[in-house]
Amino acid sequence: MLKIILAGWLGLMLTSSIALADNAHYKIVTGPERGTYIQIGADLAKWVAEPVGIDLEVMPSKGSAENVQRMRFEPGVKLALVQSDVYQAYVDMANAGNADAGQAIRPLRLIMPLYDEEINFVVRADSPIKTINEIKDKNISVGLLGSGTAQSANTIYHLMFGQPIADQNAQHLSNEDALAALIVKKIDVAVIVVGQPAKLFTDMNPELLQQLRLLRVDPNAPESARAKQTYFPATIHTASYPNWLKEDVPTFTVKAFLVTYDYGLRDTVVNLDRFAESLCTNFDNLQEHGHPKWKQVKMELPSLGKGWQYYAPVEKHLRACVARREAGMTTAAPAQTADKAPVKSNCTDEARVLMLCK
């Protein structure tokens, strides 16, 4: 009788656990509503989460730095999209002794690298500026505080010119507001980090779009060589914007990563394992039916730099997936009690961009 009771109890617990897993409701934080990140998030929700019973809500955001903060402190956020230079900036600040940065980044884990995002330097069509190394001391929109664009714009400017953008020259505008400000001549340059083709440009009024132009990298400029210390050469193709570009435009790029938290709670681990298996199973669907950027994504887990770690349970599944493909085969955080945001102190320009200051 005791065995029968225990068997029934275990069966009930297993059924409840499966039901809980099947009804999982998670969030992924992405980026602006007309950017690439939010489309990548929607693809993951449709082609990866949905087939295994995970309701993945796609949340817009300012961008990568805000995503790190929300991944760390907002209940229900289990996944985030983060630029590599933003992630590295948190790691560097944590290693330098910034406790707030350490608290934000150290529990985060990578699922896998995704694709490269192009850094677009936009000017008016009649601007005398032709190349990226000519933007020194110009009035520049660097993106909203908390966005990956702000981190990239500030980092690449500092690399090129050996100094930060002067406060009076830095405007923290959204992508849409930055393009509008360009057209009415309130700023000289708008820096926009987005994967091509971006709805920001493809959905734009054609007449307004013709009033804008992209700056090119001058491969012979010493400023370009310094930018390559962190960023890689890339090309914005005419095929991405056939109604705008007359020729390909050389620029720089930054890598996007899919990020999670170092979860230990069983139900969350189980759900993320299922997510990983579905990512493997449906990877070809993502590349065929998702945003064109998925065609650049490889099912691989390259070695990581110091301070970067993969999420171990998912890593195991994805490495097995990688091996199969190479062989020709194809809940809440531990209590996820929304940690209290850290007390803000010692505010610097970099800390402000990473949302470590008020």
Rank of each mutant, 00 (worst) to 15 (best):
E223A: 15
R226E: 15
P250H: 06
S224H: 09
V269S: 11
T253A: 15
I236Q: 07
R216C: 00
H317L: 07
D273N: 13
T260R: 02
V297F: 06
D349M: 08
E247W: 03
T253E: 09
Y263F: 10
A276K: 04
W244Q: 06
L304G: 04
Y231F: 15
A221I: 06
A335F: 14
V259P: 00
Y310E: 04
N282C: 06
K293D: 11
Y311L: 10
V217I: 15
T235Q: 09
Y261T: 01
E326R: 10
K316R: 11
A341C: 00
K255D: 02
N271Q: 10
L272M: 11
D262K: 09
C347F: 04
R274K: 11
L265Q: 13
G264E: 10
P342Y: 08
A332L: 13
P233L: 05
A221E: 12
S345H: 13
P250V: 07
T251Q: 05
R274T: 01
P313N: 13
H289G: 01
Y310L: 05
S240M: 08
F275D: 03
N282L: 07
V217K: 13
W244A: 09
V217D: 12
V322Y: 01
L279M: 09
L279W: 04
D273S: 12
V249D: 00
P302I: 10
A341W: 02
T330P: 11
A239S: 15
L258P: 01
R324M: 05
F275G: 01
V343W: 02
D284N: 14
N220I: 07
V254S: 10
